[in-house]
Design a protein around this nucleic acid. Sequence first.
DNA 1: AGACTGATTGGCT
DNA 2: GCCAATCAGTCTT
Length: 172
Amino acid sequence: MRLCVDFFRQDVLVVARSLLGKVLVRCFSDGRVERFLIVETEAYRGEEDDACHASKGRTARTEVMYHEGGVVYVYLIYGMYWMLNIVTGQKDEPQAVLIRGVKNISGPGRVGKVLHLDKSFYGESIVNSSRLWIEDTQEIEDGTVCRTERIGIEYATDEWRNKKWRFEWLLT
DNA sequence: AGACTGATTGGCT
DNA sequence: GCCAATCAGTCTT
């Protein structure tokens, strides 16, 4: 069952936690379909969160984060890695979940690589897309979820850097 | 028009 | 633990 817009309209912290255990589905241009179990996510929440790209304001790059939840935000980092984010929340409420890891593929850069992401995914609807969507498969138990500080945001102030907005599903 | 930066990764010391 | 690879976005001149 494909996740619909009501799921992505929830607050980013709820969505980031709830995406653990869900399945990311990618249908490639040659018709091949691959499925990836989501095991690690991070939440970025609002202009006040100085680790969030939206803290720098509304620009061509961050524009899609201001849309209603349910669209894809991709961007190139370090000149070589496409980061996959899902926009969440209400319109004009810039939030997104970074998909940091799927089963057997650790690290957001490798996620983007295995999914063959590129700029053309910017703004794509994860609710309607025929090449990328998420399926509601199961609810996992809170006891199997680890929360830590977000990775790679050393530039942020303590208040935001210390928030435990990284969610990891501890398998087995 | 030019400089600097970064939600990373893999390889080497 | 350290560092290069590599480039769009953003800010400065």
